[in-house]
Design a protein around this nucleic acid. Structure first.
Lengths: 224, 224
DNA sequence: GATTTCAGTGCACGCTTGTTCACTGACCAG
DNA sequence: CTGGTCAGTGAACAAGCGTGCACTGAAATC
């Protein structure tokens, strides 16, 4: 009952005996540990996954785990970095989309949906561990989200140039948008798991929410 | 942080030997199981807390646990109910506040802040397990949040009477408000743990976010 | 007073956990 | 060819886990 994985993604390796150098094989095993943990994260929290389970799934003996990471927590921190890659990609895409097309909001929501659809395990991990058990992991995610918000703040500043918005208010609006998108991500993940046909309704809702915020911003007057 | 329990105070099942009826004592133990779990939840996720640990802290033998709950998951579900009490209280307060005072938004935020301040453990539990490991618990919280949203939808319907909002749009707006408040709760909890002086800034931000949404709603026109 | 109920006990079981340790043997540099 | 490096092995450990079972004894019911 492994999670739904999109085709074309890196498959978990089988034992490849004769292939390549030692360093290469080590890197391969390391990657397999990350992949396997991602798969296990699909159902459960990081804190409830055991070192032995990860090792077992990766096809190595428990003690060999320590050749790669000092603990599961250390692996978890690396996992955050790994999961942030699609998120960063998302932001880049969104920025590019803004330049090319006209409808910022529709494009943003589409890109969000695409990323969540293509990397559900990563988003599961991020939403789950955002308030989850391991401290270092939680902090890493919070930092990344703050960066996301401040990027969005900059974009909003550009869009509201001439309407004398205070930085504080811009951050407030950006934070609201991020909140809306985060809760959309959670909803998408949970609906995808149960009845995938709801996705478009959720996306429509998200789009209207962002549009509502935009309307509000049109009527807003910042106070110094 | 660690529980604030004086040393040597661990109450056992038969400590109150002479007091009260059997049914009363059972209820007492049951409540102790819930309380103990709340305390343990302060630091960690529900999935990482063992039945034996809860029983030990509650002063009963592990097998006696089954006289009250079929599993830790079942206890978790009841814990959701227990934690939702302050939230429900909050909603009632907010409703009453709406009748008495003028400024709905300011009152709502104040009530939210008060509840979070007074019941941090419960809110920690809810935010942590909202995307957490145990399935039944996650679903119970989702259900409760949906109820919250639909209550708010009704309120918004009353406030927007005459502006022909569709139910779908009302739910959309209510969902946005709930998202904003949820993220405020998370921020409050995490700031309270580290530097409690930020709370008022966060609350100010939350108030402006809700006001921004209200402004957006004033400019919104529902489409059939 | 006799009988039933049942919250809590105590032991035992089979299993999983993280971590230690000495080891093997394929790779790679000299 | 020789010797070192080191990813992966396999046995062993102490501890903790969930749960089954026969039990005790006080309270509730008759």
């Amino acid at each position: 009952m492994s999670g739904s994985r999109p085709p074309g993604e890196r498959e978990t390796a089988h034992a490849d005996r004769e292939t390549h150098s030692r360093a290469e094989r080590k890197e391969r095993t390391r990657q397999r540990l990350l992949d396997v943990t991602f798969r296990l994260i699909g159902d459960r929290s990081l804190a409830s996954i055991s070192l032995r389970e990860v090792a077992r799934e990766a096809g190595i003996v428990p003690t060999a785990f320590y050749r790669h990471y000092a603990s599961m927590d250390a692996l978890g921190v690396e996992l955050v970095d790994e999961s942030m890659r699609p998120l960063r990609q998302m932001i880049r895409d969104a920025r590019r989309g803004r330049v090319v097309h006209g409808d910022i909001i529709a494009d943003t929501v589409k890109i969000l949906a695409k990323q969540v659809r293509e990397h559900p395990d990563q988003f599961w991990f991020l939403t789950r561990e955002r308030s989850g058990g391991v401290d270092a992991v939680r902090r890493a995610i919070a930092t990344e989200l703050r960066l996301f918000t401040s990027d969005l703040t900059v974009d909003l500043a550009r869009l509201t140039a001439g309407y004398d918005w205070s930085t504080d208010d811009l951050e407030m609006a950006a934070g609201l948008m991020v909140s809306a998108m985060l809760s959309t991500v959670v909803d998408l993940l949970e609906s995808d798991a149960r009845h995938p046909e709801d996705a478009s309704a959720l996306l429509d809702r998200a789009e209207r929410q962002l549009r509502l915020i935009a309307l509000g911003m049109g009527a807003w007057r910042s106070k110094p």
